[in-house]
Amino acid sequence: MHAPRPRLTAVDGGADVVPVDEQLLLEVARGDREAFAALYERFAATVFGVVRRTLRDPSQSEEVAQEVFVELWRQAARFDPERGRASTWILTLAHRRAVDRVRTEQSRRDRTDKVAAREHRREHDEVAETVELRLEHQQVRAALDVLTPLQREAVELAYYRGFTYREVAEQLGAPLGTIKTRMRDGLIRMRDALGVAG
């Protein structure tokens, strides 16, 4: 974990390059439709990937991905580059929306496929097609590997399946307080492994 890591990321083409996404997002905030189209191209696969993994249903995933991009347009002025990267802002928005939809669906028909939640499916991961993406995959997987099994399971069930920590606790048969702290400790370990700065 202490090997020097290239400062590359999956979505912005490398931290040492002009921060394209931040620039684009600031232009979108000023109503620039072309910048928006460019940002769409850069994030369509990731946003759809996040939504699809969480929701699974393809048509709902399309609806939510559409909502995410429209929200991105609507709220672009709320993006503050001082507070974080564009990719974080966009993926946080996407995940939030996907999770909201899962919970709405869930309240309608309590999810019957809890067992399926235990599968850690990988088939939606598109094969990394660039060197940067492949490095990003390696880094994140390596960061997940530093977690304890319970930390990892708690983080993955919450992020990839949209479970609340209560649901995660239920799934894993662990006390609420334990799951809460495992989620936090797990993310902190990952943060440190990835060298993430706020």
Binding site: A45, A65, T88, L91, H95, E126, E136, A143, Y159, M190
Partner: peptide, 18 residues
């Protein structure tokens, strides 16, 4: 902010063309 940035990295792995 840091943990959100970390969680977003998990999302960055999930790519599927719409």
């Amino acid at each position: 902010r840091e943990l959100e940035a970390t969680a977003a990295r998990l999302g960055g792995l999930l790519r599927e063309l719409p």
